Amino acid sequence: MSNTFFHIFPHENFIDLGMYQYGYEQCDPGHSFGPVARNHYLFHYVISGTGTLMADDSKGITQTYSIKSGQGFLIFPGQITTYYADEKLPWEYVWIEFDGLKVKEILQLTKLSPDTPVYRSHSKDLKEQLRNEMLYIVHNAEESPFHLIGHLYLFLDHLIQSSKRSNSAPSSKMSDYYIKEAIHYIEQNFQNNISIEEIASVCGINRSYFGKIFKKALGRSPQEFLMNYRMLKATELLKLTSLSISEIGSAVGYENQLHFSRAFKRIYGVSPREWRNSQKKERYHVSQ
């Protein structure tokens, strides 16, 4: 097994649950990463050794956690963290970065939160099954995206079962209906010049209440969700078509190319043109 390796998950339109990257590392003594804030959820499982996690809690106060083999830690989107391996017994871990519409709801069934980011299982068997699912994903990158997403669901099931919050049965509320209606409307009309007021009106509720229940359920505002969805569609067009950047921006609801490029870079860290070129290079290397 090599010292470090990771895989970027191929871009697919997985809205409820998607993966971004996953990997394995046997860290050198004192090896550290951070401080940094992630865009998505990132879970590490410690196979052996020990290390330290420094993570901001829900109040923005940095907390320090000592983590050993058989435990893990979850980093939340926007949470500033630093983690480093022990000098004498550096940790070996496997990780998965994921996100999606269902993730916040799934994680609410566990004991994990920005205030309690350390994973401790009450069951040895479930803990081993969780680890094995993660290792399977890491060592089977050649499998189809749907196959790997299936194993990501199994990983999350083991995470829930081994770290279950008491009295955590999900409830069906009227707000869930509004959010489903809003998401459906966005999926059907993202290419148009739609506003948050318009989406709220379609659901039959006022904008203030709509924004509140949407962010509570999905962890992001309606504006953020709409922009992320548009950028997701933009990556599909960049990868699969020869349309110009301006044409793609227009196709996902941006008549102004500069506004489109700025929004895209905010999400992916590079311009649409740079993203497209990187995809071409990646396909070229794969074909060699």
Results as ranks from 00 to 15, higher is better:
S113A: 11
E198L: 11
S261T: 11
S121W: 00
A217K: 12
S144T: 15
Y119A: 08
Y83T: 03
A37K: 14
P145A: 07
H285K: 15
E142W: 09
P29W: 12
Q108I: 07
A251P: 10
E128R: 03
S208R: 14
I137G: 01
Q26R: 12
V252G: 02
Y45Q: 06
N167L: 13
C27I: 00
T82Q: 02
Q26S: 10
P90A: 06
K212I: 07
V36F: 09
N39K: 11
F98C: 02
I47W: 04
S121F: 00
E255N: 15
Y153T: 06
Y20K: 06
E142Y: 13
E133R: 06
S123C: 12
P170E: 10
Q288E: 11
S242Y: 14
T110I: 06
K59R: 15
E87Q: 13
L258E: 15
E92S: 07
M174V: 12
F225T: 04
V138A: 11
Q257H: 08
D125L: 15
N3T: 14
L112H: 02
K164A: 14
D157H: 14
M54C: 11
D56M: 07
Q79T: 01
L218C: 05
L237W: 07
Y22T: 01
L112W: 02
L101N: 09
E198D: 11
Y65E: 04
T110R: 03
G211E: 07
S287P: 05
Y153P: 00
S278M: 13
Y185V: 01
V138T: 12
F214V: 02
M1K: 11
E282T: 12
G49W: 03
S175I: 12
P29C: 08
G30A: 03
E97L: 02
S246Q: 14
S278V: 04
L112K: 04
K124L: 11
K59Q: 14
S278H: 12
D16I: 03
S208F: 13
V202F: 08
P77R: 03
F43E: 08
E87N: 13
I196N: 02
Y93V: 00
T81F: 12
K68P: 04
V36R: 05
L258P: 00
D115H: 10
I205A: 07
S2V: 14
S66G: 07
M231F: 02
Y268P: 03
E187F: 07
L74Y: 05
Q79E: 05
Q129V: 10
I179D: 05
S2R: 14
H31D: 11
F43H: 05
I106P: 00
E133I: 01
I75M: 07
L258A: 15
Q108C: 08
E87I: 10
K216Y: 12
K233Q: 12
Y22W: 06
V103Y: 05
